Amino acid sequence: MDEKTEELRDLFVDATGSETVTERQSESPGSLVDRDDDAVEERVAELITAMRERYDLDSGLEDTGLDDEAYERVVYGFFAGEDDGWIAADLGEELDDDPDGADSGIDARTVRDARLDLHLVAEADRDAPFEYAALKRLLAADRSVEAAAAELDVDPEVVREFVPVARADLASTRVNDRFRDEFRGLLTDADIEESLATDAREDGLREATEDIETDVSL
């Protein structure tokens, strides 16, 4: 059980005084507690191959200089909460250890580009000084960067910075977030997170209902 899962488990136990749900989740398929790491690694590699075939990532690889193993490292780092700079430094060290990998040139921007290739958009990526949803609508309508900038009343260079992010989100939406969700399901304990979120919603609803019943006079 990793640190994040332990924190979620402790939160549940503190809130309910019971470990029943957590124990049941720990036995469910796909849990990080008993997952087959080899199977996970194989599936992550398969997803990257599928994305390469669908989106022609070969052109992206030429831009980033990253091979499939490096893309896998980006996926694992993203879901481990590592920032782009940290992943870039780690990849750079790995390539520097390779006789053919001198002067890797991998930086945080390279890792960001690779993440977006894989539909892995962080919330911070969407933190634009304009309405991000409007940019997505404009790009979906095939508007140019200049036209979008004019409509958003923002400098084109500012808009251009967020275009790859918006396009990654749009590409993910077109496949119902298939790749993003499967990566997440493989590399996070999404079942426990959803269980805790559901419990919190139900507790809040129950408390609200109790308040209503108390205040109503018959």
Score class of each variant (00 low, 15 high):
S104Y: 01
E62G: 08
E213Q: 09
D2R: 08
T49E: 15
R35Q: 12
L118I: 10
D127T: 02
L205Y: 09
G77F: 08
V13G: 07
E151V: 00
E146S: 10
D97F: 04
A70F: 02
F183I: 08
V165N: 10
V175T: 14
A89I: 02
R126D: 05
A80L: 11
E46C: 05
F12N: 14
V13L: 15
L187I: 12
G81D: 05
V163K: 07
V159T: 11
V159M: 06
L205N: 13
D63K: 11
D107H: 13
W86L: 09
M51C: 06
D37A: 14
E72R: 13
G17L: 04
L61Y: 06
E157W: 04
P164T: 04
T214P: 00
I192C: 02
D96N: 12
A122Y: 06
D189C: 04
E210W: 02
E213C: 02
A88H: 04
D36C: 08
D63A: 13
D177R: 06
D169G: 11
T198G: 00
Y71N: 08
K136Y: 03
E46Y: 02
E3S: 05
R137G: 14
Y71M: 11
R184E: 15
V163Y: 09
E69Y: 02
G77W: 04
F162W: 10
R109F: 07
A80C: 04
L32S: 12
G105M: 05
D63G: 04
G81Y: 13
V13W: 08
T188V: 08
D14N: 09
S18Q: 14
T214L: 12
R178C: 11
V111M: 01
N176Y: 02
T209N: 07
L95R: 15
N176C: 02
R143V: 00
P129Y: 14
R73E: 14
E6D: 08
D58C: 00
R201A: 09
Y132I: 08
G30W: 01
R143L: 03
E53T: 08
E3I: 10
A89D: 15
R126C: 15
Y55K: 14
E82C: 05
E151S: 06
A70D: 15
E93V: 08
F12D: 14
D153G: 09
P164Q: 03
A80T: 10
V13R: 14
T173L: 08
L152M: 06
A147W: 02
E207W: 01
D10K: 12
D38G: 13
L61E: 15
